[in-house]
Design a protein around this nucleic acid. Structure first.
Lengths: 206, 206
DNA sequence: TGATTCACTGACCGTGCGTTCAGTGAGCTG
DNA sequence: CAGCTCACTGAACGCACGGTCAGTGAATCA
């Protein structure tokens, strides 16, 4: 059985605290301006302690990103795996995104920063290997759902992957706007907007 | 008349060279990893020379962004000012974006970096004042065009600003994908995809 | 042609970062 | 209770960056 020793428990707790602190600081200051010192202060540990659990800053950010994005992926997968029509499925996927980022506001900055690789070529390659796949995989899964709907005749044929990219990125803009608004409308209103646009477009029908 | 003295000409040339170098280096290394030294080398001048024309790194980046985004805005404005139906107008706006970024690949990284403010509060405020307005203004102009179309009954009523954000951001994803593709399809194909989605959605009609 | 100017240079400086590691002390051990 | 262990600490280090400014020499002037 999976009984955890006291050491394991305290280790996991430390790792979690540090990762949460990392997200909060990056959420507040932005990727570039988030320093190890401030992350350590925020987590209530010494700077050196972080290096007991993470090799360097890069690994810290990477692991922090990964553990959060996996939670998002779980929700999206749950939405995609349901046996429902494409209408409901798209709405569910969008609801998963809006809900997740609503609950994890601090993560949003980190999420935006890591979509676009930074730094010299070597760093970029490493980021491409670790962070972009999550983005790409999510887009591919969504594209797969669109293709299935095309096969079933629910959706017009077209480049499903590019459609998926468009939709995911477009919703990101709406989510960003929601997070900046003082009094965002209920999630339903924005979900209706998004799904309405995706499914039926903006053209008025007679 | 506007005869330029020799000094003015050489000044303009310097400024242009430095700004072009800035875009190339940021395009290659990313915003954070682009150093003044490398920009200077790329422009073929000494580091100190840059500071004769720009107060500091921040102003350099800001001005570089501004002069490029204004060129984009000109194209978009031209597309929006035409007296044509909303179908053609949307296509023209999208064509302006795709075309511009196709011709100014190096600028794309800079563009993506400056959408989301970085750094501590003071820096963020300055960026909000200088860079975000261009983004917001573009979205508002596009939203205005959508509202006009709503008034004319061409488009269903809805939150025009959020629709504009969704559309602009979604197209950005397609453009990014185009820039990464080894052999992107002709612009027409992607423009059809985008305008088709926006106007009529993805749902198959009987 | 000697004097003057000034755009340009690049070695230098201070700062602030990520990273290290000798030291500390709470808690376990025998 | 003496000795030991080891997770944790934070001062110190090296480095790379943005920014400075005394110096240089080509172009201009008188």
């Amino acid at each position: 059985m999976a009984a955890k020793s006291k050491e394991e428990v305290v280790q996991e707790y430390r790792i979690e605290s540090i990762q949460e602190a990392t997200m909060r600081v990056i959420g507040r200051k932005g990727m570039a301006a988030a320093t190890m010192q401030e992350i350590a202060d925020e987590a209530g540990v010494a700077k050196g302690t972080i290096y007991l659990y993470f090799r360097d800053r890069e690994e810290l950010v990477e692991k922090t990103f990964e553990s959060a994005i996996l939670r998002l992926m779980d929700r999206v997968d749950a939405a995609l795996d349901q046996e429902i029509g494409i209408d409901a499925k798209i709405r569910a996927v969008m609801a998963a995104h809006v809900g997740f980022f609503g609950e994890n506001r601090e993560f949003f900055r980190l999420y935006l920063s890591l979509r676009m690789p930074e730094g010299p070529a070597t760093r970029q390659r490493r980021q491409k290997q670790h962070c972009q796949p999550h983005y790409r995989v999510r887009a591919e899964k969504f594209a797969k759902a669109l293709e299935d709907a095309m096969d079933r005749g629910e959706v017009r044929r077209g480049d499903a992957y590019k459609l998926a990219l468009f939709i995911i990125e477009g919703s990101t803009a709406i989510i960003l706007e929601r997070l900046n608004e003082d009094a965002p409308p209920s999630e339903e209103v924005d979900l209706d907007l998004i799904t309405g646009l995706i499914l039926d477009g903006i053209r008025k029908r007679s």
